[in-house]
Amino acid sequence: MPDDEAVAEPTVVLPRWMEAVAALVPDGVWQIASGADVPTLVVASTHWRGVAEAMRDQGFRLFVDLAAVDHPERSDRFDVVVHLRDTVQRGLARLRTTVAEGGVLPSLAAVFPGAAWPEREVFDLFGVGFEGHPDLRRLLLPDDWQGYPLRRDYPLEGPRVLDPESRYAL
């Protein structure tokens, strides 16, 4: 490619719903980004449920998944990520927020009933609490399990290392 030929910057066209949601919850949206793959809203954890309700009212009625990411070097340690889909306009959206260790997020189970089990899974494996959840118990691990295995500082061998007296230590 010749050097003198100007390379046009790709114009980022944000979807219309992003501005609408940001206008509906003015304090809740910290950042609007096109994202590498999916349009992303970075949300204040205090407005987590309000933004989710606004997204649902904008047409994102299908809850896809809820997950968490551990960043042990940060003070707000966990990213909680939600993917939503608009089945009419065929768009995919991502909401992201941060929680500190031992912190609590508002539960989305009242907004999207399908979020109840993913929130239990995040509680089980990361130790993130969800306020207002109808049944916040461990989902995949036994009820008397110690620790949260998907945290970065959890030993790979699990309770065999943590507690040799544990009944899970073989």
Partner: peptide, 12 residues
């Protein structure tokens, strides 16, 4: 084997 949540063989 030696995963945190896996029994190392059902013979345990």
């Amino acid at each position: 084997h030696e995963g945190y949540n896996v029994v190392d063989g059902v013979d345990k």
